[in-house]
Structures are given as structure tokens and as C-alpha cells.
Design a protein around this nucleic acid. Sequence first.
DNA 1: ATTTAGCACTCTTAAGGCGTGAGTGCTAAA
DNA 2: TTTAGCACTCACGCCTTAAGAGTGCTAAAT
Lengths: 348, 348
Amino acid sequence: MSLIVDDRAAQVLRCIVEDYVATAEPVGSRTVSKRMEQALSPATIRNIMADLEEVGFLVQPHTSAGRVPTAAGFRFYIDNLLLRRSLMLGEEEQLKLAAGKAGAGGESPDDLVRHVSRLLSQLSGQTSVVIVSNPNQQRLRCISLMRASTDKILVVAIMQSGHVQHRLIDGEPDITSDDLEKINSYLNSFTERLTLTQLRMKVRSELRREKAKYDRVMQRALAASARVFDESVHGEVFVEGRANILEQPEFVEDVQRLKRILRAFEEKTVIYRLLDRAMAGEAIQVSIGCENNVEELGDVSVVASGYRHGDSSMGSIGLIGPVRMDYPRMIPLVEYTANLLTVLFEQR
Amino acid sequence: MSLIVDDRAAQVLRCIVEDYVATAEPVGSRTVSKRMEQALSPATIRNIMADLEEVGFLVQPHTSAGRVPTAAGFRFYIDNLLLRRSLMLGEEEQLKLAAGKAGAGGESPDDLVRHVSRLLSQLSGQTSVVIVSNPNQQRLRCISLMRASTDKILVVAIMQSGHVQHRLIDGEPDITSDDLEKINSYLNSFTERLTLTQLRMKVRSELRREKAKYDRVMQRALAASARVFDESVHGEVFVEGRANILEQPEFVEDVQRLKRILRAFEEKTVIYRLLDRAMAGEAIQVSIGCENNVEELGDVSVVASGYRHGDSSMGSIGLIGPVRMDYPRMIPLVEYTANLLTVLFEQR
DNA sequence: ATTTAGCACTCTTAAGGCGTGAGTGCTAAA
DNA sequence: TTTAGCACTCACGCCTTAAGAGTGCTAAAT
């Protein structure tokens, strides 16, 4: 009765996990025996199951029910037993096709991401979620101030990734178009490849250091541009395929849980916390149940992966579903999709 | 047994509607009699109820259950019996406060709308929905082309309402900044107060009429700018407070219906169809059940009202909820909110 | 020492039967 | 015209029962 699970027990666990994923019902010894082609009798399976229960990989909802894998059981399955299934015939094509359509047109990056995300939710049958990293941390391509009306200036920042960020600022009616022109060329002389945050700091320090160098109007304009993209800007969050959670019996049965999840979907910060771990890392992230450390979503699993533009990470895309998820299918799907996004941004 | 409902019957109907709205349960004659302070005995009420059933304002789910108002019953109630309840203490303040916070900052119009919509969903306990009219139909303030990178041009259009619309277009690497400058001042010489659609047509006809007048580069640039804001641009749709539909017992009980509604929320075109009628008209629109002519949402009610910027309509905001909705509260709430949006846009 | 057949036992689930109560419609009296 | 009275209907909750799935344990088989 060692804590290390031997190979035979592992096969039984796999079998239980896979059956449970397919049926959402507790799995009995008889079923496992059949699925293993009668290599072992139900009685033997029962012994092994008892062992697996002892190490915490299985539980019984009640006496005389079959077993259900625990979060720990799923974790072991994913880490040690999972055989990846490659993408289904057509899935890859569908994604590529949609990508082609999206990548070609003048679609904005956000629309592109939403598009791909929706497709992912359709292919997976789960809810798809994307976060786009805070634009303040993306690298700039160029920046420009322009007159919007007599008392308003529009600041436009174009990122390396093709994202366009803009903001209308009030006042400053006495700054002329010529001033703006000057400011533009001044800003762009050192803007390239900085992040917005860096740019803001840079402008601030320039202003402080060489006060004399700039006339008053120019100073005010620069100061205004510096506070334009402040902390109030957040990365975008997209959720697609919410209705899919109603396909999962475990969610439908428990309205309270359903409410909690739907509410979580509406809180951008929650989704952001859920996915930003995946944004940093290279590999795909799988978190089972409360592993994600987000109380509101303690009973869902998340499969997510970051996507990049060049060397800087742009965001992450993933799936939210029940713990009982078809990981062998979902993991490659998310992986492929995140990769696709990276490739698509490469082309921009 | 006339088809015209006399005053007493109307009072009974009101009573039934209001009780049903509060409890979501069929209402019996005994209850109505009590609520009317025993003015009439249950037996009399039963007779009246039978009449109301005959004209189609009530139904019985089964013999020996109380009565439930039909869509027609609700319609009659709204058209003839509804006493508006004014906003609750604090609701108005909350909305104004949030509005002040939102209106002041450099928040984008879309964020403002989303903000107000979310608040509406919280105050109403229903799902709130907003559509923003297609920007192509909004009037321009000014337009500007700028170099984004060696092979990309950014076109930015600022609308009278403060909406900023932008698009990155490919190619045209040999158009210089000077060319762009020229194009900008040319475009802006007649841009003001045109819609994007009108501008596009104008540019096209100019190009055709006076070919000689423009050099080749300029022509190409103008042609590019003309196809920038094409038909692919759609108005935005925001849905807030989806989780609120789970507060309604009638939706929780029927998962199929729930799925249908949730799916509908994800289809922008569906929401658009649902609300665009309200966008045109002046008054608030109430559509009960299938009155909205959107199959996917045949069993919900919608209370919606347009909001404007100056004389042109900008979109509409509303609530989606069960037919059994608290109209006397929801109608003023939506009305006030739509008005608030109009006022906020006025200030921009 | 492991595996397995057999068996008693547990517990869920579905089905049937029954009483209760809410609510009705009808009739006859006020 | 209204209302009291009454018989009737039907959903709902509760109980009992039977079936079935699945277990754990023991003893025999390998």
C-alpha cells in the first residue's frame, strides 16, 4: 500500500478518468474491467480502486456508487498518463481558414482575437477566454497628437503589434497645429520600441531636467501627453461561448455555482487574474479546480497558453470548463490556437 | 361578457399581474380578494377571472391552479393600468454619481456606455443591453491620415460624439508625410458634419469628376482612405448582468430556454435587431414576449429607449427580462438612464 | 501471494399509492 | 348581482416498495 502508484493502478486511474470524462457519472469496477478488456476481474479492480482512494485520487459520492476522480487524481493523470490526441480532422483547417480570413483583412487586433476565441469555443464546446496584455506594457511604434476640436486634442499611439490606443484630452486650446507638429517629431525621435510606461517616465524626466529648453506651450502639451495613458488603462478581456457551460451537467445541476461562474465572467479583473499566469510562461498551463487561486472560480479547470508578438508577450488565450474536461483534446487545441495567434501577429 | 373589460375587471387584472410579478406563482381568487381588501368575495373574483380568461388575458396552467396573465394581459396592463413608480430613493443619485465620475474623466464613449449599462443592470436586477449605432452613420468632426510605419497608414476619424474610429491600411509606402498632410487638409475642408458614408461617396465622386486635378500618389491615397471605413464596420453591442437572468425562476427551471437566451446574448446581430426599433423612436419601447419579432428571444420582455447626441440618434439602451417584469419600476429606470446618456454625450 | 468468485449488504432511484390542500365551477340562496 | 356552500380536480409531498448498481469481505483457486 505504498504511496507510489504502480503501473497497473495508473492504468486503472486512466481508465476511470476517461470514462468519467465521457459520462460525468461515477465509474464502477465492472465498467473498468470491461474497458480493460477483462485483463482483470472486477474484484481485483475493486482492490486497486480502494488503494487509489487511499492515496486521495478517487472518492465515492456514497457507498455503493462508483468512484469519481479527485482534483489530485486529475493532476496525476495529466502529469503522468495523458496521451495527447492530435487535432481532429478539419479542426486545424477550420482554424487556419478563419485565421486567413481574419489575418488578411483590415480587421483590428482585438477583432482578430475575438474571432479566433469564438472559434476556439466552438471547436472545444467550452467557454473561451482571452486577455490582452495591458497596452501600457507593449512596445510603441509611433505616437501622434492631433487637434480634434478647438478645445480637445487626440493622442494616438500605435503599438508594434498593430494595436492602436487613443485618448481625447480636454483643454489646451492655445496649442497650435504647429506646436503639435513639433511635439510629434520630438516624441517620435525616441519613442520607437519604448513601452508607454517608459515613454511617460522619459517625458517626465526630460521636462524636469531641461526646463529651459522648452517654451511654456510645448511644456504643457508634453505634460498633457505624459498623463494620457495612465494607469486607468487596462488590458482587454474577451469571453466567448458562455452558453457552453450549460452543456455540462455538473453546472446545470447547481444553480448557485452557475451564478457564481457567470458573475465571474463579467468581472474583467477575475478573468485577468485567472489567465495572467499563463501569459508569462512559455508552456501551456493547466489548472484544475482551486489550483487557479481564484475563489470565484474554484470549481472549474482552466487550460491556457500565452501568445506573443515577437519577443514580448501579448496576452493569453484559454478555455474554462468543468474539472471533468477532455484534456487530451483541449490541450493541443489551446496550444495550436495560441500558436496561431502568435503567427498571425507575426504577419502584421 | 363584452370584449371590453370594465373597470372592476381591470382592477382585478392589475391585482393579478402585480401579485404574479412579485411571486412568479399562479394567483388564486382568494388572494385577489384579500389584496382588494375584501371588497369582493372570492366567488365574485372567480367570475371576473373567468371573463378575463375568455378575452385572453389570463390562463390556467391546469385546473385547480390559480391564473397567470398572458402576454396580452400584460400588454393591456401596460397600456391601460400601469401607474409609474418613480425612481427609488438613491437610485437617481447612484446613477448621477456614476455618471459624474464617468463623464468627467477621459473615459472613452464606449467605456462610459458600458459603465452606465452595468449600473442599470445592477439597479434593475435584469440584464442590461446597449447598442451603439453604426459609426458610419455618425457625423464626423475631423479625419486624419498618418504614417504608422514604412508600409502602413493609420486613418483616424473623430466623430462629433467623441467616438474615435481608426483603421490601419496596408501598402502605399511611397506616399510621403507631405502627401498625407495635403490629403488631411483637403479632406477636412469638407468633412465636418458629414457622415462617414457620405464622406466616402463624396471622395469617390471627386476622384471621378476631377481626375486631372490630383497627381497619382494623391489619387491612390484618397482611394485608400475612401475604402477605409467600409461596410464591415458595425455598431458595438454591450451586454451586462447576464448572471441576473438566473435570478428568475422561470429561466432556471428551463435549461433549454436558458441556453437559447445565453446564446442570443452572444450574437451581436440578434441584440441589434432587438434594440434598433427603440433607437429610431422617441418614446420608450416595451415589447412583451414574441412582440419583439426575434425568434431567439421570443419569451423575454424588452424595455428599451434610444439615446441621442444632439439631433442624431446614437444608440439605444434597455433591459431584457422575463415577461413577468416589474414594469412600473423598470420603465422609469430605463427612461432615466437613456436620458442620462443623452445628457452625458451633450457635455462632450 | 495474488486473483477471483460468491455473497451479503448499502444506498440510490424510480414507481406506485395515498392524503392533503389549493383552487376551481356550479348552484342556490341572499 | 353577489355570495355561501359544496363537490370536484389536480399538483404535490410523503411513504413504501422493488430493482439495480456497486461495494467490501471471505474463502477458494491459481
